[in-house]
Amino acid sequence: MLILVTGGAGFIGSHIVSSLMSAGHTVRVLDAVLPAAHRSAPSLPPGAEWRHADVRDAQAVADALRGVDAVCHQAAMVGLGKDFADAPDYVSCNDLGTAVLLAGMAAAGVRRLGLAGSMVVYGEGRYTCPAHGPVRPGPRRVADLDAGRFEPPCPHCGEPLAAGLVDEEAPVDPRNVYATTKLAQEHLAAAWARATGGRVAVLRYHNVYGPGMPRDTPYAGVASLFRSALERGEAPRVFEDGGQRRDFVHVRDVASANLVALDAVDGLPEGTLRAYNVGSGEPHTVGEMAAALAGAYGGPPPVVTGEYRLGDVRHITASADRLRAELGWKPQVAFAEGMAEFAGAPLRDG
């Protein structure tokens, strides 16, 4: 197949391009190379067709879609940004860009789409109260965070909760601008599928890390921030008490998930969208990740600061059972192995 990968010059996108080409697909890359995510010229595998253009440019998208069999849509502005002033850029890049792409696909008759989703659409993860069963805590209060009370309490009785795995049927509850735009991308893709008879596989990534991760920027992931600090000879600064639980999934596993999703998307009913969590199934706390990375790098141990970011959630870990059962995918890179590799891998300037 000829597959268009938007955002294919980015951290995750470039790994997807390599996986697709290794599997025998022809790949065309469209990427705007936005300064917030790229500080240097992109480097693509030999044989990948390059289009330097913005996904919001309807003519460039139309040109890039000629002859394409499927689209793998990775282009997005990622992370929490610096403040709410970033909101128009997030909405423009993520939602307007997706709308322009989908309109172009509708016109070109391209009916297969793999969409980069995110765990952030869920908000907080799954929690159970001993007295009230499964509950959904509201956003954490500033007063509690200031006092170092980081665990969300039961909304009914205020007692501590047990965190569990989130599956794809969990209610969505985006709690920051980025999360809202990622959910809007899914809604736009679902509307496109219904209108055109298209098929969409959404891969909701959990915390992706690995070789080629960009250096620390306001939009970088926590693993990149910690790795960049170690490279400077500084201790990783762990927010809250370090007990936030996440699912750290290696970028090669994310790339392989995209490969199997694009191969299987034809098996979905016409006009439907199907969401899949992409997680390692091996949750760890942020503090554990920082310690493992610092140990593997040989740098100073992490420092727990008690700082917090509004909009962050406490625990969000994935059940990837649907992706395993329906598409036969399973992660290959274990946590310790991945962190050791990441500690020794060079970061990219963008």
Results as ranks from 00 to 15, higher is better:
M339R: 07
D146R: 15
G287D: 09
T272G: 06
G344H: 08
D31Q: 07
H315G: 11
T180D: 09
S19W: 00
D247W: 05
A290G: 14
V222A: 11
V333N: 09
R66H: 07
Y122F: 14
E326F: 13
P137M: 14
Y205G: 01
T217A: 14
P45W: 01
G221T: 07
G10R: 03
A170C: 05
V166F: 06
D216K: 13
A189F: 02
T196F: 06
Y127P: 11
S118Q: 07
G212D: 10
G81R: 07
L115K: 07
G243D: 15
L4V: 00
A189W: 00
A229V: 06
W192K: 00
A106G: 09
P346Q: 10
V251N: 06
A162R: 15
E288G: 14
V254D: 04
V172H: 10
G298S: 10
G164P: 01
A201D: 00
P155S: 15
R322T: 09
I12W: 00
R66N: 04
L165A: 15
S92K: 09
G104T: 03
G24V: 02
S224A: 15
A229F: 10
T285C: 13
A99M: 12
T6M: 02
V121W: 13
A193Q: 02
Q74K: 06
T272L: 10
F84T: 05
F84A: 12
V68N: 02
R28D: 00
T285W: 04
I3Y: 00
L225E: 06
L80N: 12
A235R: 11
I12R: 02
A193M: 03
G7E: 01
G287T: 13
V278A: 08
G24L: 06
P139V: 08
R56G: 13
G306D: 15
R39K: 11
G138S: 13
R252D: 15
G123Y: 10
Q185I: 01
Y122M: 05
D86M: 10
D216L: 12
Q59V: 10
G81S: 09
P88H: 13
I316A: 10
V33W: 09
G338W: 07
P236Q: 12
S40E: 14
N258L: 08
V71M: 04
A37V: 03
P152T: 08
W329Q: 04
D57T: 07
A162V: 11
R66D: 03
N277R: 07
H315W: 11
L259K: 07
G114L: 11
D266N: 10
Y178P: 07
A99T: 07
G298D: 10
G67A: 06
P153A: 13
G212W: 04
W192P: 00
T272I: 06
T180R: 13
V29D: 01
L30K: 06
S43Y: 04
V5A: 02
V78H: 06
V333D: 02
V172W: 09
D31N: 09
I3G: 00
E282L: 12
